[in-house]
Amino acid sequence: MFFQQAPADTGAYMIAGYAVIFGVMAIYLISLVIRRRSLQQDLQVLEEMEKKEPPQ
């Protein structure tokens, strides 16, 4: 490997590597967005409930 002229053909591994990098980062970002959405929905419901029955 160290004595050959042309660089080794390792393009497929590079693609796999960057697929993992972009993939994991995208999944993490999406999970942040989804969690925020669901929390905001919860918050809305809770705030409505609070309005309906004010604390005694």
Partner: peptide, 16 residues
């Protein structure tokens, strides 16, 4: 540049 020995896969190094 493409690394002379390892080829394309060396680009993984930066973000790795």
């Amino acid at each position: 540049p493409t690394e002379a020995v390892m080829g394309q896969v060396q680009r993984v190094f930066y973000f790795h």
